[in-house]
Amino acid sequence: MIRFGIIGTNWITDQFIEAAREVEGFALAAVYSRTEERAKEFAAKHGIPLTFTDLEEMAASTEVDAVYIASPTSFHEVQAVACMRAGKHVLCEKPAASNSHELQAMIDAARENEVVFLEAMKSSFLPGFQAVMDALPSLGTIRRYTASYCQYSSRYDAYRRGEILNAFKPEFSNGALMDLGVYCIYPLIMLFGAPESVMASGTLLSTGVDGQGSIIARYKEMEATVTYSKISNSSVPAEIQGEEGTMTIDSINLPRKINIRYRDGRVEEISAPEEGAVMSYETRAFLDLIANGKRESDLNSHANSLAVMSLLDEARRQQGIVFPADMKTNSG
Score class of each variant (00 low, 15 high):
Met309Val: 11
Phe117Val: 05
Ala27Leu: 08
Tyr32Lys: 07
Ser100Asp: 04
Arg295Glu: 06
Ala110Asn: 08
Tyr149Ser: 01
Phe75Cys: 06
Tyr152Phe: 15
Trp11Asp: 14
Ser173Ala: 15
Gly47Ile: 13
Tyr281Pro: 00
Gly332Ala: 15
Asn99Val: 13
Ala194Asn: 09
Tyr262Gln: 06
Glu102Lys: 04
Ala27Ser: 15
Glu196Pro: 03
Thr225Trp: 10
Pro324Trp: 08
Phe16Met: 13
Asn304Gly: 07
Gly175Tyr: 01
His89Tyr: 02
Phe75Arg: 03
Thr329Met: 15
Glu114Val: 12
Asn304Trp: 05
Leu205Asp: 09
Asn233Ile: 02
Phe52Trp: 09
Ile252Pro: 00
Ala303Ile: 10
Asp65Leu: 08
Gln318Val: 05
Ala200Tyr: 07
Leu136Lys: 06
Ser301Asp: 04
Phe4Ser: 01
Ile270Asp: 03
Glu269Gly: 06
Ala238Phe: 08
Ala59Leu: 10
Ala19Phe: 11
Ala19Leu: 07
Lys122Ala: 10
Phe168Ala: 05
Gln319Ala: 11
Gly332Tyr: 13
Ser201Glu: 14
Gly332Thr: 13
Pro237Ile: 10
Asp288Pro: 09
Ser271Phe: 00
Ile321Cys: 11
Ile240Trp: 00
Ala59Asn: 12
Val90Gly: 02
Gly8Ser: 11
Tyr228Gln: 05
Glu269Cys: 06
Ser305Met: 07
Arg316Glu: 08
Phe75Ile: 04
Gly140Leu: 07
Glu24Trp: 08
Asn233Gln: 13
Ala97Met: 02
Trp11Ile: 15
Val78Pro: 02
Ile189Gln: 02
Ser229Gln: 01
Gly242Ser: 08
Lys122His: 12
Gln79His: 09
Gly181Ile: 04
Val132Ala: 00
Asp54Thr: 15
Lys40Arg: 13
Gly193Arg: 01
Asp288Tyr: 11
Gly208Pro: 03
Thr141Val: 15
Phe26Asn: 09
Cys184Lys: 02
His89Phe: 04
Ala224Gln: 09
Ile258Gln: 05
Arg21Thr: 09
Val78Glu: 15
Thr35Leu: 06
Ser297Thr: 01
Thr329Asp: 15
Asp14Ser: 10
Met327Lys: 14
Glu171Gly: 04
Glu114Cys: 12
Arg161Pro: 05
Ser201Trp: 14
Cys92Phe: 00
Glu93Asn: 15
Ala200Glu: 11
Arg38Asp: 10
Ser297Arg: 01
Phe52Thr: 06
Ser331His: 12
Arg143Glu: 15
Arg295Asn: 11
Glu119Gly: 04
Gly293Ser: 10
Glu239Phe: 14
Thr227Leu: 08
Ile2Thr: 15
Ala97Cys: 07
Ala80Tyr: 00
Leu254Ile: 14
Ala109Leu: 08
